[in-house]
Every structure is written in structure tokens, then in C-alpha cells.
Simulated assay, not measured.
Amino acid sequence: MLKIVDIVPYFPKKVIEISKLDTHKPELNTKKIIDAIGVEYVHQSAKDEYAVDMGRKAAEKLIKKNNLKKDDIDFLFFASLNNYFFIPASVFFLHKQLDLSDKTASYQLKLGCSAFIYGLMLIQGLFATNQAKRVLLVTAIDIRNFLYPNSLGTFLLFGDGATATIIEKNDAAPIIPFVYGSNGRFADNVFIKDGTENFPYSKKSFKERKDKYGTTFSDATLYLNSVNTFNNTISKTEWMFQKLVEEKGVNLANIDFFFFHQSSLLTLKALQKKFNIPDEKMIFALKNYGNTVSSTIPIALFDAEKQGKLKRGDKILLSAFGIGFSWISAVLEY
């Protein structure tokens, strides 16, 4: 039903070597933490470089590389948690910066790590109902400006970046099976609270707080309950794999490569062990980029193809678990 034609990433020029960051906690074994999360380098956006700007740079490069006519793009999807203005949605500023046709519809996916796969599912629906033939799916995150230096679980893990993907309708390709779900009861497990209409910035916004696990954060920076996130990632991924096998007829033994959201090396290793995935089928793409939220899976696809590992016709499984909580998995032929 669809074909991923090409993926182009964009990374800000500033590169941070994680081992050299000042964590303000010299008593901690930073190397041990870095080994667990699996990140050696991350990129950080420039002072006046926002998610929309990074998305535009990735999209412009993709459009030029593939000699695309902007009028041929039926739909623009923008997967980003960042706001350019409070309103309207950031996708319209991306549409403007790309100078797309007024025939190109725009839609923003304000999801986190699961957004790329959710985008594929929605795009398949557009193709199935003959609403579009070519879609531009852009992911972008500007997250490092919202990290609390004393919160090592996030400060040493997340990186900025963007991707642009061209997806075209392909009647010869089979319908992609998706399994998915969400649970808003965990919405307060990964969040940035202050800076909204309900919780405007105040003198307390940047005051250090601690949760019951000892995690430090502030209400104006990213909070991550790593324990609940890890446990739910494992349990919901197990549920999704079971649904794929029992209801969608997927044979996991026939999967050539497994592309999980690149959350942390600890989580990826746990998933690999849980599902007995051979090393040669497991994709890791954290080391040089960090956790780039909605961009991790397209970056991993780009990297694997660039390295000559991923080839056209390979059967791949995509799976992501993210804030909200939300989760989704899919099996497709690349």
C-alpha cells in the first residue's frame, strides 16, 4: 500500500561529547551511566534554531535530492512536540518555510517517540481511500534546551535532530498490519509541565524537585519516570508482538531486522533478550545521536541502509513506545 522512497536526516552543527558534560555530580560514576544508556554523542540546536527550522532543512535536502516538485506533495505531516507559536500548529510554519502549494494539506502529530509509525498508519489510510499519492513526513525535536542538568537520566540521553521522509502510494505493496494503544493514566510519567495556559511560568518553575526514586527535575524541564517507562515498554511491546503473531499472522522468525525506538541501550538490550532477537537482526542507532524522540526510527532506517545492512525488499518490524503513554508496532517490506 505504501513505499518509503527516501529518508534524509538533519543534525545541528553543535556536537556534544557526553563523557565531557559537566553533570554537577562528580561523586557519580558517569561512565557507568553512559555505558547503560549507550550514548556517546548528541547534537544540540543553535540558539535561534527551532524544530521547524531543523525539519525544513531536512525536507529541503530531501526534495532536492529526489528532484521533487513541491506541487506533487499531497500531504505534509509534521511529527514534533515543539511549538513554534502557541497557536497555530507548527506544521503551518513548516509549510510556509518550504513554500508548499496550497493544495498540500498539513497535519501535526504531537506525539513523542511513537509518532513516526503513527504517521505511517495515517498515511496508509490516506492511500487506501485515494486521498493522496505522495506524502512528506517530517520529524523534529528541540529537546536539549528543556533538560535539567542534574537529571542525568535525561541530560545524558536526549539529542536534537530531524528527519524528512518521502512516502508514496504503491498498489503492489501489501497492507501493513499495525497494532497500537495508549494509556493516558501515565501522562504524568514523562512531561514538561510549566509554560502552558494551565501552568504558566512562575518563580517555582525552575526550582529543583525530586520524585520518590530520587530523580531530580524542575517543572519547566523534562521529567522522566524511567522505572514506569521501562516496565511499560517491555510489557506493551510483548502485548504488541503477541497481537502481531496471533491476529495479524506475523511470523517473527521471518523478520529480517527489528527497528525499535532508540530509547536507551538498557531498554534495547532488554527487548532483545525478551524476544530472543539475534544480534544480526537487532538495530542499534543511539551512539552518535542519542534519543531523538520521533526521529530515532527514521534515523535508524537511514543509518542501516547507508551501512549496506538494510536493503530493498527486507521485511522489517518497527516498534515504538513513548510519552502519553502511546505504543505502536508494524511489519512492512522496505
Rank of each mutant, 00 (worst) to 15 (best):
L62M: 12
V138W: 04
D211W: 00
H261I: 06
F178T: 10
N83C: 05
L100W: 01
P174S: 14
S19V: 10
S19E: 13
G184T: 12
I143L: 12
P298I: 10
L244H: 02
L265C: 05
P12W: 01
G308D: 07
V331R: 11
S264Q: 08
T23R: 03
L137V: 13
L21V: 01
A173H: 13
M1Q: 12
L2N: 11
N228V: 07
I316W: 11
Q272K: 15
K103A: 03
L332N: 08
F86W: 02
T139V: 10
I123N: 06
K309M: 12
D6S: 14
A172T: 14
K315H: 01
A132E: 13
S114Y: 10
A172Y: 05
F127Y: 11
E305Y: 08
Y41F: 11
Y201I: 11
K212T: 11
F77E: 02
P9N: 03
H43Y: 07
T215C: 00
E247R: 09
K20G: 02
G308R: 06
L62C: 11
S329D: 11
A89T: 04
P149E: 05
D6H: 04
F241W: 12
S19N: 00
Y223G: 08
S218V: 14
N82C: 08
A173C: 09
V135E: 13
S151I: 00
I323V: 14
L109D: 00
W327R: 03
